[in-house]
Simulated scan of single mutants.
Amino acid sequence: MQSGVYHKRLMSELRQIQSSTLSNVHLKTYEGLDTWVITIHGAEKTLYAGEEFTLRLKFPSNYPFEAPEAIFVDKVPVHPHVYSNGHICLSILYQQWSPALTAQTLCLSILSMLSSCVTKERPTGDLNYVTVARSPKDAIWNFDGKSLGDKSARINAWIN
């Protein structure tokens, strides 16, 4: 069951993102309060300029104390931190999440991650990861750039 904090916070964030003047991040649709679909437009003068991506945010019942699940759907950007199944390797989605962050700041962080990319390529171990990964929340992410493991598959690590 969702708490009053969950409902109040998501209603506030929904209003914030709906009224936002950001040119690269737009709320496309939402299904209740727990699932939002966001359109992210690649920033000008970046590798992703002119491209459009769809991001699905699923909010857990203990949001904002736990990060939403963020997955690219439909067209998945080719990026060193984005797996071909749409899972995103970004610390604020996991260990570095803070209740001070919002859906909008999360989307801006993902846009920034895309904008700072210098080469379009998949992460090392992409095929192995997408073969076993069901949810990014089930993965054990290591942000030192050396390994990534998935608990459900009992795979300890892939080394870069």
Rank of each mutant, 00 (worst) to 15 (best):
L55N: 10
D34I: 01
N62G: 07
A43K: 14
D34V: 04
T54I: 15
I40H: 03
V37M: 10
T39N: 14
L22G: 13
L57Y: 13
E66K: 13
T35Q: 06
T29M: 07
T35H: 05
T35K: 13
P64G: 10
W36A: 08
G42E: 06
E44K: 10
V25R: 03
E66T: 13
G42Q: 07
K45Q: 13
L33I: 01
Y48G: 00
N62M: 12
I38S: 01
L57E: 01
E44M: 06
W36Q: 01
A49I: 01
S61V: 13
H26D: 01
V37W: 04
E51F: 08
P60W: 10
L57S: 10
D34E: 14
D34K: 13
L55W: 08
E51L: 06
S23R: 14
I38T: 02
W36P: 04
T35N: 12
K58F: 07
I38D: 00
K45L: 04
E31A: 10
N24I: 05
L57V: 00
L57C: 12
T39A: 13
F59D: 06
G50R: 09
Y48M: 03
L27A: 11
K28E: 15
S23V: 14
A43N: 03
F65Q: 08
F53M: 06
G32D: 06
A67T: 02
E51A: 15
F53E: 06
R56E: 15
W36S: 05
F53D: 02
E31F: 06
